[in-house]
Design a protein around this nucleic acid. Structure first.
Lengths: 138, 138
DNA sequence: TGATATATGCAACTCATTTGCATTCGCTGA
DNA sequence: TCAGCGAATGCAAATGAGTTGCATATATCA
């Protein structure tokens, strides 16, 4: 019953620990990017005892291994979501309640080449986030 | 010799202090978004003695008053730049050296309406940042 | 199963940012 | 021009996310 992500983990030479299984399960079960402390909170709810430090270390490792993506909104907290099994997408966050909603669109791919020509950078990734007011907070 | 921003400040009912003049002068003289501590560093260089706390408070106030925009890259530090006198634009940051370069383009405006229809949010702003490798770090 | 390298937990630390509070200063009205 | 008031500042201490060191525990492989 190993998820694709767990399988990939082994391939990268990492051990399959209780903490990693649980963290990946939570992220795979979430439609939204989660912060380290949100992941930690869900671990407690699931009665899986894992230290917050371990959550941080594993999120960083999973990100480095390419299994997770990071989302940086403007509240200074880094969020993570699984890379595979999801279409490339972006987010919108409510300025009122903080709610995050997925946007299944990305107009940026075509732009990358233009950016590279304009800056002579090699573009590796981009972040596109919208901010506004959700129907309840409007 | 008041800048437009200073003029606007008065209009919002804020006092024109030494700190505010100096902070705005620095941001108006910069082509790149600056962090609080970068602003503070430039204040020291200009021999203007202002506490870092005051820099934080003023950047937040100027942002709330609409005179500054925030830029959130992925290093967990908030950067500020003046809103007026610049075209709406985005940034690219080098993953190697951290260098930030302006991108004078924005393909997003047209997209806002689509996002609003898709989410029923009212879109207020967006963040679009690119990350990659600059010519020197490539 | 046992050896070993990796992962974890705990405590303490870093660094950006915020808050409380006493003091100072810009601004308005006399 | 000056007094008085409320807003702004400086300093110290707190907060909160994230990191690091180190001793212990555990997954993995022979």
């Amino acid at each position: 019953m190993k998820s694709r992500a767990l399988h990939n983990l082994k391939a990268v030479g990492k051990k399959l620990t209780k903490a990693r299984r649980a963290i990946l399960a939570i992220l795979e079960g979430s439609t939204l990017p989660l912060t380290a402390s949100e992941v930690h909170g869900q671990l407690r709810k699931a009665h899986v005892s894992v230290d917050l430090v371990t959550v941080y270390r594993n999120l960083a490792m999973l990100h480095e291994s390419g299994l997770l993506l990071t989302v940086s909104l403007q509240d200074g907290q880094l969020r993570y979501e699984v890379r595979h099994g999801r279409e490339h997408h972006h987010h919108i966050q409510c300025r009122g309640c903080g709610k995050i909603v997925d946007l299944m669109l990305c107009p940026i791919k075509k732009l990358t080449e233009l950016v590279e020509r304009q800056t002579r950078f090699v573009v590796e990734s981009h972040a596109l986030e919208f901010f506004g007011w959700c129907p309840q907070c409007r």
